[in-house]
Amino acid sequence: MRISAHGLGLEVPSGWEGRIRKQLLPSDATTPEAAQLRAHAVLHAANFPLLEERGDFGSGAVETMQSGHAFIALVEYHSSSVGTALFGSGVGMPRQLSTEDFSPRQLQRTIAGQAGTQRFFVEDGRAFCLYVVLGSMADRARVVPKVNAVLPAITIAAPVPPEWLEAM
């Protein structure tokens, strides 16, 4: 079962669900920069039911997570981020994570018992943040392999041409 949109794709494994959408923005964001942000993609994958009202980094969904659950967010950043220090690792999207990568301190918002990891990278000329949350830090040895089975199933295509953005 495959889904794709906005230059992102995901072969969704059984027991997981996924969504791909454009970035959420305040309704009053009307500047050219905001118009470009609207073209930026967000991918979510989870091995639990995804609530429909959730933020780009999973707020609204991660609060429902239990032990054994995993949430993956791939959030695109502005093209001006390409080449900056934060996105300068030069290694592309990580397709394998280790249990040592996860920590409660890397969560966007601390929730007792949970752990997360964040990686900033550039792939195919597009800047992204990969954000992964585990429902239980204590259960990470069992859940991280499940995450590692999904990460290679994510595909990233070349960026949207600027002339397309101008037409949006």
Binding site: I3, G18, R19, E52
Partner: peptide
């Protein structure tokens, strides 16, 4: 399992199995 899109245009896969 099911794949399609949401009414607001998200590509979506829903886990049933």
């Amino acid at each position: 399992d099911m794949a399609g899109q949401t009414p607001d245009g998200e590509a979506a896969a829903v886990a049933v199995l």
